[in-house]
Simulated scan of single mutants.
Amino acid sequence: MAPQLKRALIGGIAALSLAVSGGYAITRIDGAPATIQNVAHLKAKPGLAGLKLGRRKQIGGKKTYGTVTLTSPAPMGGVKVKLAAKSPKYIKVPKSVTVPAGKKRMRFAIGTAAIPRVGTGVVAAGLNGKVVKRKLTLTPRHYLTQLTLDDYVVREGDATGGTVALNKSAPAGGAIVVLASGSAKAKVKAQVKIPAGRKKAHFRITTGDVGAETEIKIAARYGQTLAESFVLAPKAAEVTYVPTKFTLHFNEFVDSTKVRTLEAHIDINLPAPEGGLTVQVTSDKPDLLGLSNGGKVTIPAGQTATPFYITYKEVNQVTPFHFTTTYNGVTVNSIVRNLVPKGFEGAW
C-alpha cells in the first residue's frame, strides 16, 4: 500500500477518490459509512447495439423515426452515431445522431418523400466500424394490395375473371388499375377502374384454344405490380385429381387408455373443384378405430388439403394400424402407428 494512502486511512481522514470497475467511486472514508457516488464509466467505449425503426412501412411524404442503441451508457461528451439512407431521394436522415452522456439510446427523425409506387430503401447506422441496417418500405397513399383470379383451371374458350383490391378506398375520380396478360390465349382489357369510395373491382378474362395445358399469368399494376396464374386446358382434357399424401399428426405409439381424438390430413394434387372433392378413407382395424361419416372425407372447394379425425378404443397389447385413402382408383397408404396399453414406455 502506498505510504500516503496508508497514512490517510490510519489517520482517519480521507480525501480520497478511487475509481472502481463498476463505474462508481468511494469518496469518503472517515470511520463513518462510505458514500458511493456515480461517476463516469472507465470501461471501453460503448459500441452500437442496434437500430430500430418506428415503422417498417410508411406512406411516402410522412415522417417516422428511428432509434439507435448503444451497448453501454455514453461517456461524458456523448457518442456520435453516423447515419445514412439508401434511396436518399425518398428517405432523409441526419448525418449523425448523438447519444447523450449517461444514456444508451437516442431517437432521430426520418423524413420521406411522396413515391409513385411501392419501394424499399435502407436506413443505416454506424459506429466504430460496425454498421446496422434496417429496411424501410415506402408506399403511395393508395396502392394495389390484392389480385385474385376466379378459377385455377379454365377450359379453352370459357370466360373467367379476377378481382383487384386497394389498401384503402379509392380517391375522388377513382383508381385506374393497369392489366396485362402473359399470353395471347387469354385476353383482358388494358385497365379496370375502381370507383371512388370503393376498394375492389372485378374484371373479365376471355380465353382461346390451346393444344395442351398452359399456365397463363395475369398482372395488375397500381402503385405496385401483382401477378397470379391460372391453367388453361383443352376441352378434351380431363383434370385428374389424385390423393398425394396422408399425414398422421401424432407419435408412433398412442396410449389407448387416454380419451383422445387423433388428427390426420389428406392432400390432393390440385385445388378441389366446386362442391369439394370427397375421398374414401378406410382402416385395417375398423373394430378399434372410428372415422366420422363412414370415412368419407371432403376437401373443400379451392383447397388442396383437409384434416379429419380418428377415435379409438382401448387395447391390451401393442396393435399396429394404418389407413388407406382412395379416389378414382388411386390409393395412398398411411405410415404405421401403434395403439398400446396403459404404461407402455414411449406412449402419449
Rank of each mutant, 00 (worst) to 15 (best):
T69F: 12
T67G: 12
P88S: 05
G77D: 02
R56L: 15
G60K: 00
V68G: 09
K52F: 04
A74T: 01
V93A: 06
V81P: 03
L51G: 06
R56G: 07
P73V: 03
P75W: 00
Y65Q: 09
Y90Q: 08
V81M: 12
K57V: 11
L53C: 09
L83P: 04
A84C: 11
A49Y: 13
G66R: 09
K52V: 12
G60M: 03
K52P: 02
P94N: 04
P75E: 11
T64K: 05
T67K: 14
V81D: 09
T69I: 15
Q58F: 01
V79M: 06
A101W: 05
P88N: 00
K57P: 11
K63I: 13
A84Y: 12
T64F: 15
V68K: 08
M76D: 15
A85H: 03
Q58A: 00
G77C: 13
V79I: 14
K63T: 04
Y90T: 00
M76P: 09
S87A: 15
L53W: 04
V97W: 04
G50K: 10
V99R: 00
I59N: 04
P73K: 01
A101G: 07
S96T: 11
K80V: 14
K63H: 13
L48V: 07
G77K: 11
T71I: 13
K82R: 01
K57E: 13
K89R: 14
K95D: 15
T71W: 09
L53T: 06
P94H: 11
K82W: 13
V97C: 06
K92S: 05
A85Q: 11
Y90C: 01
G54V: 01
P94G: 00
K52I: 14
R56I: 15
V93W: 01
L70K: 07
K80Y: 10
Y65S: 15
T67C: 11
L51H: 02
V97P: 01
K95T: 09
K95P: 06
V81S: 14
L70T: 05
A84G: 09
T64N: 02
K57Y: 08
A85W: 01
V81H: 03
G77T: 00
K82H: 14
V79H: 10
T71Q: 02
L70Y: 06
Y90S: 05
G66T: 12
K95F: 11
V81F: 08
K86D: 14
I91Q: 07
Y90I: 09
L51A: 07
K82L: 15
V93P: 07
T98C: 12
S96L: 03
K52M: 14
S87E: 08
K80G: 04
I59Y: 12
K52S: 15
V99K: 03
I91L: 06
K92L: 06
A84V: 00
L48N: 04
V93H: 03
L48E: 05
